[in-house]
Design a protein around this nucleic acid. Structure first.
Lengths: 334, 334
DNA sequence: TTGAAAGCGCTACCAA
DNA sequence: TTGGTAGCGCTTTCAA
């Protein structure tokens, strides 16, 4: 193993000088810097992470608590994680992956044993039970999602309230008078997942403002679940003419089931999805959608964590505005 | 911050004794052990990971290189990662997540800077470019997937060759004479992803053995891509009566497109999927499938890594036998 | 602009 | 069965 002492010896300088060359925390003459870098390269030196962490109290690791269930919106989680990992690397940090089922104890463990400098927490619930622990943590944390009680915490998310409203606005503008929400699995609502409730709230408020009728259903993400939803929705009067789907897993089943029932999109019924754009485009009828900017959120979360580590960085709630893109699955009601 | 010295003082013992209580590497009297544990609990002591790593040359971290693309079989990746993380925790280890695009350099970095004790590598290609680096690494590694040149390496995977063969055997047993493979995206083949080729090989060899006709297509994972495949397949003579789908993303589109073309499953055409069982069950017609045991593989990979860290653990290639479950989407040809 | 050296908190060897 | 203590490899203060 090559140590900093080896490099120092080879370069004819002291270990501290090598350290300063690497950290840039001291001005170093051009000559010395070059000598040191040459030795580093020649010897293939890599600072030992443990030693560095011990001496500096900085691990250069970000912990990320991700929900690795499959009931959830898997590609979105994936995109977020990927973007966060990339952003972390751009800041010379690595990502330690925790699963959500470690709970608050996991946060405590990672923080107290100094495994990571900061913690990102995905899949935040409205009445998030981990909030007290996160507050007590002596390390920066960024929540992805906004708990009801978020004072003093840094949170990022899509503005789901605005997203719900935007969906209704789009359909109402087209003339729809009864719009339905095919929402996430009942389990998601039961967990009190923060975004589900906020979307629903925005959805209903906007409908109320515009005097439109709404029906909101939680949908089990299976073919059967979807069919039950449709049976319910199409029995209602006045007829539902616009569907907002906040549940990616049922988009495919929905479209095939509509086809089977001979309801054309958008002639007979409009469909508006809340999902990543690539998914919206991959269907038979390209779907009008409100984007879930997972990658952007991942990057932003890391950015805010780094800022807190740098000392700036007040607690703040950062909500990205929804972007609706019309792609042809929505139109005027029949 | 609570240190081992604080605990020692509170318990009236030496720091080394506390260390030994924690590691179990020395026999400790019941009285002492209790005193120490009490102090640990009272003070809320957590060993500092960096210090521990520095002193013991063990990080208790497993690095996992995961492909975080969305073109890939996302839920399978997710399941694997989740299972690996859980298994790692069961062995008192954490998981450091690397993205595949860090390449060989990433492996080197993590190994040389002692960020992890061992490395798990997903998404292995046949002509895996990282193999030389992995061999040179002074740390245990487990590949998920089997490169052509795997001498001296530890690999785990589903036996995709056997899986391909099992699919053909199942359909041939039912009487099908022309079976088609709807394979992964051309991009997957182009990358030389190890499992894709092995599956195809098993598929074709078994067909040859049984004198069955085959057509194999790479399928772009979009609705259009799937439709192109079907157009091609159904133009063939003698008619294709059995479809093996090794591409989860198109399962949904396939079923709705078949419905649209008025081909009943399994009356007119049999469909056999290669995918996790929950996915197979979530369609309108529950699908006969060969399971992709992602969770099992994740656990096994961790197990093999731990074994190598313990000193036992010869390099080996471990292939899990495929399990085919009939669920009603396959039957005799019309 | 550079060097010397005192820790960081823990493990594990050497003694008792 | 336990204690003392020398490192592990790095950062950072103090001195020059």
């Amino acid at each position: 193993m090559v140590t900093i002492a080896d490099v120092a010896r080879a370069a004819g300088v002291s270990p501290s000088t090598v350290s300063y060359v690497l950290s840039g925390k001291r001005t170093i003459s051009e000559t010395t810097r070059r000598k040191v870098h040459r030795s580093i390269r020649k010897l293939g030196y890599r600072p030992n992470a443990g030693a560095r962490a011990l001496a500096s109290s900085r691990t250069n690791v970000l912990a990320l608590v991700a929900p690795l269930r499959t009931d959830l919106n898997v590609p979105v989680v994936m995109q977020f994680v990927g973007a966060a990992a990339a952003a972390a690397r751009a800041h010379d940090h690595d990502v330690l992956l925790l699963t959500a089922d470690e709970g608050a104890e996991g946060l405590d463990r990672v923080a107290a044993s100094a495994l990571a400098d900061a913690i990102l927490v995905m899949d935040v619930e409205a009445g998030e039970p981990r909030v007290p622990v996160l507050r007590a943590l002596e390390r920066p944390a960024v929540l992805i999602g906004v708990p009801d009680d978020c004072a003093g915490l840094t949170c990022v998310d899509l503005d789901f309230t605005a997203a719900g409203a935007a969906c209704v606005a789009h359909l109402a503008d087209l003339g729809h008078r009864h719009v339905a929400l095919i929402g996430p699995s009942p389990a998601v609502y039961r967990r009190g997942t923060s975004y589900a409730g906020r979307f629903l709230r925005g959805f209903e408020r906007e409908a109320a403002d515009r005097g439109a009728l709404t029906t909101a259903l939680a949908c089990v993400p299976t073919y059967d679940g979807l069919r039950d939803c449709l049976d319910d929705l199409f029995a209602r009067r006045p007829p539902v003419t616009g569907l907002v789907v906040h549940n990616e897993a049922v988009l495919g089943p929905l479209l095939s089931e509509l086809a089977r029932r001979d309801r054309r999109v958008p002639r007979d019924v409009s469909v508006l999805a809340v999902c990543p754009p690539d998914l919206a485009r991959s269907h038979e009828v390209p779907l009008t959608s409100v984007d879930i900017p997972a990658a952007e959120l991942g990057e932003l979360a890391v950015e805010l964590a780094m800022r807190q580590l740098d000392g700036h960085g007040e607690p703040e709630v950062r909500l990205l505005p929804p972007r609706l893109e019309a792609r042809g699955s929505t139109g005027p009601p029949p």
